[in-house]
Amino acid sequence: MTFDFGEVSVREVSRNYGRRRALTRVSLACRAGEVLGLLGPNGAGKSTLLSILSTLLAPSAGDVRYGTKTAAEAGPALRACLGLLSHDLHLYPELTAAENLRFFAQLYGVSDVDGRVAAALDRAGLLSRRDDVVSGFSRGMRQRLALERALLHEPRLLLLDEPFTGLDDASVAALVARLRELRGAGRILVVVTHDLDVAERLLDKVAVLKDGRLVAFDDARGRIREHYRAHVAEQRA
């Protein structure tokens, strides 16, 4: 089953946990070949929005459309088109780098498992450590491995929660280049980040969330710092 993945749109989405509102009527959209950045202070609802986009969490109200279909209409096959790099990394610490990749490649039913696993290890710079267990890896190594794991099945929509934490400058530059390449290939990327320098180099659109509300949604480049200062920095100071 193939999906028309021209656009992902979030319409009037709210999510509450009992009496607590995590998201209130958020609407935004992102087209193929664009990188959307989610900025905001901690607890603003960025991760909740990412979970809703990944179909793991159902919205309390409103809907998300992938192309023309909602998650309920598209069914489980939609999950093959989504990739999520979560803050929790989703790796088994007792398994080796290669075993982790191989397990998820097989679970997603991709073709040429060996080739993809080898390519992913190469890109993560972990070829020499392929048979070492993940629990011995540094945060940066895990982060790179987790990213490659999320990309194994070549998702159309890639959701990244703070992908730059724990990476050194060279790795950040490599990751930015990689994400640009994916953007060029017509993928949709949604990135949660605090790193303004990277954000300016990478993002096409910016959404600023605060207390579960969308306070700014802008596709003009170069105004990221302005939005950030207006809504996020004051709270951090």
Binding site: T55, L56, P76, S86, L89, H90, Y92, P93, Y108
Partner: peptide, 16 residues
């Protein structure tokens, strides 16, 4: 639960 791998399993298109 340790690194939320159960969620990773639920994210896969495989039959639950």
């Amino acid at each position: 639960r340790h690194s939320e791998t159960l969620r990773a399993l639920m994210l896969a298109p495989a039959s639950r």
